[in-house]
Every structure is written in structure tokens, then in C-alpha cells.
Nucleic acid binder design. Sequence first.
DNA 1: CAAATAGTCAACCGAATAGTTCACTGTTAG
DNA 2: CTAACAGTGAACTATTCGGTTGACTATTTG
Lengths: 105, 105
Amino acid sequence: MADLDQTFAALSDTTRRALVAQLAEGEAPLSDLAAPFDMSLTAVSKHIRVLSDAGLVAIEKRGRTRYCRLQAGPMKSAADWLSDYQTFWDDQLESLGRHLREETK
Amino acid sequence: MADLDQTFAALSDTTRRALVAQLAEGEAPLSDLAAPFDMSLTAVSKHIRVLSDAGLVAIEKRGRTRYCRLQAGPMKSAADWLSDYQTFWDDQLESLGRHLREETK
DNA sequence: CAAATAGTCAACCGAATAGTTCACTGTTAG
DNA sequence: CTAACAGTGAACTATTCGGTTGACTATTTG
């Protein structure tokens, strides 16, 4: 429960989802990750910490740079939770479609 | 972007996910939804408002009761976003498995 | 050694969250 | 008509969040 809280919360911020997207390209140092954002390094560092606390990112210190890499496990849990409702939204979209077809008849 | 922010944020609370689960059983009045929680009706009302603002719940007033029902559309968007990383976590779990098999050899 | 680089830590700020209580509005039932 | 019921709204509190700046540590480079 609390895990899902943390995972969904971590993903509820545009900046953090962008970081995740960057990390999907591969491991990267924090400074590289921070570069695209109009925001202090400290701010990005905090975002990375949120992701790391949620288990979505692993941080490894090599020399003076911290390399970050994606850990997708918790995302699978989130996706699994959502998938319980898949039939539900399929049904709704289908009935919406039916409704639209009905209207334009 | 902001839509996903709102959707993930709405789902980042245990109480709200429980409400979603209840609503998956079908339409229900707010008071019924609130009953299981050790929390004021006002608090649950606020949670429902968060879900409603995120487009996850539709509220329909009939007489003095508000009936709530699930609208799963935004959940599909969230699931779609997550699914971009599916291969990623599959790979990680697979390599984890390989690693474990290696260890116990 | 000295200077630049990579990053953290602590303190602070304003806005948002999650909850409370109390007063209130509408609606239904006796 | 009156009482109970379903729910909202406003005000308040404590905590968290997203961001800043400035001082600091550790590491690499010239």
C-alpha cells in the first residue's frame, strides 16, 4: 500500500517523469540529468532522491560523480494495480464508441 | 503532462485507491463509500473531489444523495505511460533471475 | 598546491495536502 | 411541520512539497 503511495507520488511530477524518461536511455550522472531543466542542481538532486526513495532509481557513486540508473520494478507494481481496471476502461471506451455511433446515425 | 500529474497524484493515496476499488463494484452514494473509513464524511468528500477533479470519478446528484461512478479513462493514460517501460522492467527482472540462477549454481 | 567540478546539507519560503470541527443547505420521511 | 439525512463550505492546523540560496565536502585536473 505505502509502496504504491510512494510510487504513484514519485510519478506525479512532470520533472520526475522526464527524469525517468531520460534514464530509460541509460545510466547518467546527475549533472547530465539536470542539464535540460531550468532549475538548480539541488532541486534536481531532490527529485532524484524522491525517485531513489521510491526505489525507482539506483545511485552509484564513482569518483566525484553519482551515476543514476532506472529501476523499473516499482513501476511494474503500479502497472499491475492499474491493470485490474483495464477491462473497466475498455468497457467504458467501447460503450462510449457505441454511444457515438448511435448519435451520428 | 499536467493531466498525468493529476492522475498519478490522485492515485498516490491509499484511501483514494480504496475508493476506486469500491467504485469498480459499481456506482455508490458518497455515504456508502465513506462508511468503511475511520474518517469524517467531509474528509472522504474531499478525496472524492480530488478523484473527480482528476476525471476519475463522475458525481451525479439524485435527490439528496450524490452517486459516484468510476471513469477509468485517465487510468488508461497512466497505464499507457507506464507501458513504455514494460520492456525495461521485464529485462531487469529477467537479468535478476539470471543472476539468482547464477548464484545458486 | 590551487582551482574547478560534482554534489550534498541546512535553512528558509510559499503553496498544497490531509485532516478536523462547526455551521449551513437541500431533500426525504414521519 | 418537524426531524433526520446527505452532503457542502469555511476556517483552522500540521505536515509535506517544490523550489531557492549559501556554505560545505570530496574529487579531479592543471
